[in-house]
Simulated scan of single mutants.
Amino acid sequence: MGGPGSAEPPRAAAFELAVRLAGVTGTRPRVVPAPGGSYRVEAPLPDGMGGEAQRGVLDLLGEADRFGHHARAHGQAVWAELG
């Protein structure tokens, strides 16, 4: 995928990651441009996500250049930046 050392363009890698995160989380991630020509994927996390799905999300985030998690009043989400 388009993580560190990859030759895949960041935009294509971000959309690929979004599709894969959707498959694991059952949610609809979004892809937005980020500073410096990179792309950010933001994926909401469903309540009650099982351990296998959580590990799948962590595996996918590990393919990104940068990633993180945030919790807000309306729920939790993860983000990943490529490029």
Results as ranks from 00 to 15, higher is better:
73 A>E: 10
4 P>K: 09
19 V>Q: 12
4 P>R: 13
44 P>W: 02
29 P>Q: 06
8 E>Y: 10
57 V>R: 00
45 L>R: 00
44 P>V: 04
78 V>Q: 01
17 L>D: 01
8 E>F: 09
30 R>M: 10
81 E>I: 07
33 P>F: 08
56 G>M: 04
21 L>P: 00
20 R>C: 03
35 P>D: 10
23 G>F: 07
42 E>L: 11
37 G>A: 08
69 H>L: 13
32 V>M: 11
61 L>H: 02
37 G>R: 10
42 E>W: 14
17 L>S: 04
30 R>E: 14
58 L>P: 06
25 T>M: 02
8 E>T: 14
30 R>K: 13
38 S>L: 07
55 R>F: 11
60 L>Y: 02
23 G>Q: 09
49 M>A: 09
56 G>E: 03
71 A>R: 14
26 G>H: 13
51 G>S: 15
75 G>K: 04
48 G>N: 05
13 A>I: 05
73 A>N: 03
13 A>F: 04
67 F>M: 01
27 T>S: 04
11 R>S: 08
16 E>A: 11
42 E>F: 12
50 G>C: 04
74 H>I: 08
38 S>K: 10
12 A>K: 09
47 D>E: 15
70 H>I: 09
33 P>S: 12
46 P>W: 04
61 L>D: 02
23 G>V: 03
60 L>E: 02
24 V>C: 06
66 R>V: 08
13 A>R: 06
5 G>M: 06
8 E>W: 03
32 V>N: 11
20 R>D: 07
45 L>M: 08
66 R>Y: 07
71 A>I: 11
73 A>V: 09
58 L>C: 14
35 P>L: 11
47 D>R: 13
16 E>C: 06
76 Q>G: 08
51 G>A: 13
27 T>E: 14
49 M>G: 07
5 G>Q: 13
77 A>W: 03
82 L>Y: 01
46 P>S: 08
14 A>C: 05
15 F>R: 07
15 F>G: 02
28 R>W: 14
59 D>K: 07
31 V>T: 13
75 G>H: 12
1 M>T: 11
55 R>Q: 15
31 V>R: 07
55 R>L: 15
37 G>T: 04
32 V>I: 13
77 A>D: 08
22 A>N: 01
7 A>T: 15
3 G>S: 09
68 G>V: 00
22 A>F: 05
74 H>G: 05
59 D>L: 14
65 D>H: 07
31 V>D: 05
83 G>I: 03
